[in-house]
Nucleic acid binder design. Sequence first.
DNA 1: GGTGTTGTTCGATTATTGTCGAACAAGGGT
DNA 2: ACCCTTGTTCGACAATAATCGAACAACACC
Lengths: 101, 101
Amino acid sequence: MEPHEPDLTAVPVTNVLAALADDVRLQIVRALAEGGEAACGSFDFGVSKATRSHHLRVLREAGLTRTRAAGTSRLVRLRRDELDKLYPGLLDAVLTQRPPA
Amino acid sequence: MEPHEPDLTAVPVTNVLAALADDVRLQIVRALAEGGEAACGSFDFGVSKATRSHHLRVLREAGLTRTRAAGTSRLVRLRRDELDKLYPGLLDAVLTQRPPA
DNA sequence: GGTGTTGTTCGATTATTGTCGAACAAGGGT
DNA sequence: ACCCTTGTTCGACAATAATCGAACAACACC
């Protein structure tokens, strides 16, 4: 299986935004931004592993993450450098803690 | 009808991103960013006026635009200052012309 | 070889969203 | 008063996307 990690410049902005416009995926991105590389299983946000796998695929195919195999696990990391270069400020804006309610 | 223009800080980030994650709406936002205030009818992007009205509602309810009546028209404008303050870099990142394909 | 762990894929279901035409509402002319 | 322009709202329908359980694949370890 090709990992389907597209060139970021080939991904429409709307796809990048759509990938970020989901609560579960945003939590994953936040976790990756803070903790660096992490195994898929470490993102336990109240969804089944099938759903989690789906969200990780969306993030990967939107060019937001890279995945590499490591034993039986798969390690995921944010493509932060590329994102910051192509969309400066986007990640920072999105990752900023929500203003106190 | 209350125009439903929420306090930006009360809108979840995912809603803001979802509002931007649509091609028609992104074109509207780009037009507003360049041309300032504009009438609803000026956004002719190959959709019916019903659909256009729907998209403008989504943008308004996500806190991205403000609308005011002017005769039989309605003038729409970007809430750029507020957006830039709350999500610095977001609009700039999104409005930047896509890299040449 | 067998067992457990970790993920992915498949098919089905449900929910959300984009789209339209038609009907309606508010104004501005003439 | 009448009509035209400009938008909004109302169903309805189609397309997309989120979610799950179950089946499957790859690997590690005993």
